[in-house]
Design a protein around this nucleic acid. Sequence first.
DNA 1: ACCTGAACACCGTTCAAGT
DNA 2: ACCTGAACACCGTTCAAGT
Lengths: 185, 185
Amino acid sequence: MDALTVRALAPRLDVGAPALYWHVRNKQELLDEMSTFVMRRVTDALSKVPPGASWRDDVAAYARVLRSEYLLYRDGARIFSGTRIADPDVVKAKEPWLARLTAAGFTLAAADDALDLVTAFVVGFVIEEQERNRSTETGPDRYSLAERDAWLGDGAELVKAAGHLRDDGDPRFERQLTALLDGLA
Amino acid sequence: MDALTVRALAPRLDVGAPALYWHVRNKQELLDEMSTFVMRRVTDALSKVPPGASWRDDVAAYARVLRSEYLLYRDGARIFSGTRIADPDVVKAKEPWLARLTAAGFTLAAADDALDLVTAFVVGFVIEEQERNRSTETGPDRYSLAERDAWLGDGAELVKAAGHLRDDGDPRFERQLTALLDGLA
DNA sequence: ACCTGAACACCGTTCAAGT
DNA sequence: ACCTGAACACCGTTCAAGT
């Protein structure tokens, strides 16, 4: 993100840096446009998900698509989640999901809570996930179990043991998603 | 965050900007120290929570403390969550929580999943919460319901209606936390 | 051990001027 | 309508020099 300077970007478009200011008021507006572009992609992908057999399938599909879209961009969840949305269509993309949940018996308030809860979970999960990926690139630190145990020092036996049991990626996501869906049920 | 420059910080410490480089290698190290300082506060607060009557009470207390600590700092959840942790004690702070959950009948893997799921939820929830707060400060945009409805335009009736039902802050957090705890149960 | 003054490379942004 | 060149204020960082 620090490397994204207006002076580095301009040559990629075969122009000088000041040329960008004809198209955009300032750098912040450029970043905002980036955000809405990504969020539009997210909601486009979400709106193309066909209704499933049950609300559980629908909400699970929602969560998986949201996660996979964030994963497309480096630090996507941290950078693009919870940013001010400039496009009404992005907010309106919630409509079919509220419709499916209310049709399945949720009150409107409960449906709204459910989608928000799932969204919060996915955002938090992927932030952590992408940070871990970024760290392993940077240097093979304490993500090897032995090094991690040594780094932790004495005590905290459960933390160490949990580290050895831990599996990352899809299965972990699916397990936690299942627990969350159980709660919504 | 943009306003936190090394040249603006130094006068607050009654020194010139270069003086900071005697104490810290570069600005990134300063930001990392900030992160670990905040995370240490978070884990200190968590370790002072007395065991409750049930694992539900314990996990709920965990979630509430985590949220309230993030809320202490502007954009705290977005900035400080999922950062590389430099202090083993911060990671070790998980130990008593794993102990309480396993004592309550969770397997170690399930306890680890449970804490991670709750953490992800809190992070996602507070990111959204703090962004909303920041937006209302900036300008009374479309956070009045009438303006929001107008901004949304035609269609999306459920989204509009949900906006009118919506209550922010503690009750919303508690409801979603309850659903999550039900899922863990 | 801790800090300053001066300097360097780089950044976002402006603006007159070009086509 | 779209872009350039030159310039400005500011930033992170270095380093010789001070106490």
